[in-house]
Design a binder for these strands. Sequence first.
DNA 1: ACGCCCTCTGAAAGTAAGTTTCATCCGTGG
DNA 2: CCACGGATGAAACTTACTTTCAGAGGGCGT
Lengths: 304, 304
Amino acid sequence: MAKSPKISASHEPGGLIVHISGLLPSLSPAEQRVARLVVADPADAARRTITDLATAAETSEATVIRFCRSVGMDGYPQLRIRLAAEAARRVEPPDARVVGGDIPPGADLAQIIATIAFNDARAVEETAEQLDPAVCEQVVEAIGAAGRIDVYGAGASGFVASDFQQKLHRIGRIAFYFPDVHTALTSAALLGRGDVAVGISHTGTTSDVIEVLEQARARGATTVALTNFPRSPITEVADHVLTTAARETTYRSGATASRLAQLTVVDCLFVGVAARSRARTKKALEATAEAVRSRRVGPGRRRA
Amino acid sequence: MAKSPKISASHEPGGLIVHISGLLPSLSPAEQRVARLVVADPADAARRTITDLATAAETSEATVIRFCRSVGMDGYPQLRIRLAAEAARRVEPPDARVVGGDIPPGADLAQIIATIAFNDARAVEETAEQLDPAVCEQVVEAIGAAGRIDVYGAGASGFVASDFQQKLHRIGRIAFYFPDVHTALTSAALLGRGDVAVGISHTGTTSDVIEVLEQARARGATTVALTNFPRSPITEVADHVLTTAARETTYRSGATASRLAQLTVVDCLFVGVAARSRARTKKALEATAEAVRSRRVGPGRRRA
DNA sequence: ACGCCCTCTGAAAGTAAGTTTCATCCGTGG
DNA sequence: CCACGGATGAAACTTACTTTCAGAGGGCGT
């Protein structure tokens, strides 16, 4: 019976739907059908009986129950109630077209802007809602006490990794980021107990990042994963897992929403670490700001 | 007949609790006991099973059902769901401190997270609100028709510039980004009529970026500025000005909120350009996604 | 005061919903 | 080709919900 993975959902009163969509890829096909129905219309799902929902998802009641357990609920009634609560909280959708997340072919610029902003803002909010402060705390602790911090990320997540590195560096922490896998592996091999390795991967399946994190862990470093999917492979090599909550649309594979969510998490960690030693940090920040001042012109605001 | 009073509650989705307490005096003693429990803690009631609630109210299940009917519900499950929804709705706005924008010295992680997320989301939303679709349209036109696009940015804005370059490249536009000022200047000197130069600077005062943009303009390129300050120096060398709306807090000079706002704008432009030639774009996006597939592992699964 | 009737109430029977168990059916890897 | 393990639905089972019904009280007319 140690079977049910049961990713904890208890600490995120607001983000059940988000939580479910994050878990979606890790569910079995039949469970995914259920999940999709639930995510598509939580309020409606809450109204249905288990048999009803099972039928709608073209599966059996047993599968629905399995789904409930998979997303961390005790059973169907609990899911139902949480869904109802979630649906109630949901603010009015601005516009049917906008909510879908995808952009209609004939959209004009104003529509595009509204859609993107809406999704981006949502990703940020929902990410914050489902972030576990306890885990963040542990990560902040680890980073604050670390001898050295390595941040890994590839592709789009590489930007975020690099951003994090820069932030940490600015407040006087010894942090590195490597655009190149080989260099990263080399660095990971030099990590040890008390050091921290942070791996960022939206999908959680980027083998480069996973390998490096694995290496870091083998060397005794504390490993942290930042991903959108709580059961993706990267989480298996991480001591602490932080998740974002972006539901990417197919069309804009530029994947900005997830990037914003990642940045938000990174920023939370950054501020958390900074807050641990406010005085020292402030001084460092001022010094770095001063350093670039000469590169600025004018009074920062000029002309009537 | 005509027995159950069944005061309709269906048309007042928000006021179930109010509704119940309103007709509390008209209920029978046993039902009143149930009603009082429900009103006192709707969320708790929603969690209980009918037997449980009956016991707590020192009555029988039958009475609970009668109570449900009395207040206009079909049965207990419906009441439960409505209660859950109701209880969820009365969650309170985050916290006064959170709205302020700055982070109090003694803040704990949860507070920090809420504050940051709130500000980040706000920055994105407000940016979208004040973005001028007409200007965006012109920029999109210019980029869509450009022979070549240069994107400039330094420091934190450099990330965004680089991101934009990558996005444009992904959909087959010829775009460049230069981390180094000298290289950027060289490139700007090679621009001409029909080309586009985009300068990104949060403060709008970064001399490097301004100079490069100026150079580009002198060569006949269309220049675009993305900044938070509509009257900053950079706007004087730009044909089109796009602004973000982030109010940075002093403390987190990492400046994430402004970065998120910038990314959102960039994304809007990107999608706008992409939408101009959907077919070609989609093909390009698919090809690039395919290219990194081999770098992904596993089915995103394998229990803890 | 008595008894009739009417409402309130919970016990128990009945029905529906939710949960568990188990046999079967794949696809995977030896 | 077989053994294995996960996924799945049918059916047995348990729990929750609903209905029925009879008894307890209480007002009120005689």
